[in-house]
């Protein structure tokens, strides 16, 4: 693992700014990895051993993800919407897991650890670098039972919503009277008043298939030929 200063620099660049939450996140990740005996979590041989549960969607979360390399789409990052400045680091190989919680008292102690700096933000930024892990965090050894359907890897199960026909992966369907429903159909979704639309620019795609390229070529050719005949016959279209 790179040293703290380099990790903080790259984390802040990836996140968009340097803030006290970045310092806490980088240190939380360094401590978490140390606790589960992973010294290079982003290296290929270690990347698949690690799962991190992040309990907040704040600056700290980005720093933890940056340092550990965990990603939502790889299923190595689990977002638990608890609103708690904490993350749990799980070593899948050994089963060891530690929950690292950022202490609230660290905020009050910032003025003691960086008395020469005025301004809450700047003082916290400096103080969080100076506090020992024992002051900045509280650590619990925990057990994490990870369900088979939460593990990284290919989709293991699909169900189809009996109401709207949506395919639902990894057992995220809701059973009602023994029948599968997608969440939006089964319960209140985060959106409402859904109404399907279509727009002309939705025909755009970044790449085209061989067949559509050929059809485009034919269209162009026919159009050029038509123009050439028109010129020969001295026929012009006059726009009104």
């Amino acid at each position: 693992m790179k040293n703290f200063a380099s990790l903080l620099e790259s984390s802040a660049a990836a996140h968009g700014h340097l803030c006290p939450g970045q310092v806490v996140g980088v240190r939380m990740a360094m401590l978490g990895c140390r606790l589960i005996d992973l010294d290079e979590p982003t290296r290929h041989d270690q990347i698949k051993k690690l799962i991190v549960y992040i309990e907040m969607d704040r600056c700290t979360a980005d720093a933890v993800a940056h340092v550990t390399g965990v990603k939502l789409g790889r299923r190595s990052l689990k977002f638990m919407d608890y609103g708690i400045m904490a993350a749990t680091f799980v070593n899948l190989e050994t089963g060891k897991a530690f929950r690292v919680v950022s202490t609230e008292e660290a905020r009050d102690l910032a003025r003691y650890f960086a008395p020469e700096i005025s301004g809450k933000h700047a003082q916290q930024l400096k103080a969080y670098k100076r506090m020992p892990d024992n002051v900045l965090f509280r650590v619990h050894q925990v057990k994490v039972a990870i369900k088979e359907f939460d593990m990284p890897g290919p989709t293991r199960y699909k169900a189809t919503c009996v109401q709207c026909g949506q395919v639902v992966r990894d057992h995220r369907e809701v059973l009602k009277n023994g029948r599968p429903y997608c969440r939006p159909c089964a319960e209140n979704a985060y959106f409402s008043d859904a109404r399907e639309i279509i727009r002309p620019d939705m025909n755009w795609a970044p790449e085209q298939s061989e067949r559509s390229l050929y059809l485009d070529h034919l269209k162009l050719k026919q159009s050029n030929e038509a123009e050439s005949i028109s010129r020969k016959k001295n026929i012009y279209h006059i726009n009104p």
Binding site: T103, E105, L109, Y112, F113, M131, V135
Partner: peptide, 10 residues
Amino acid sequence: DTTALAAFNM
């Protein structure tokens, strides 16, 4: 060490 004392008492 007033800093460590403060952290201790927290």
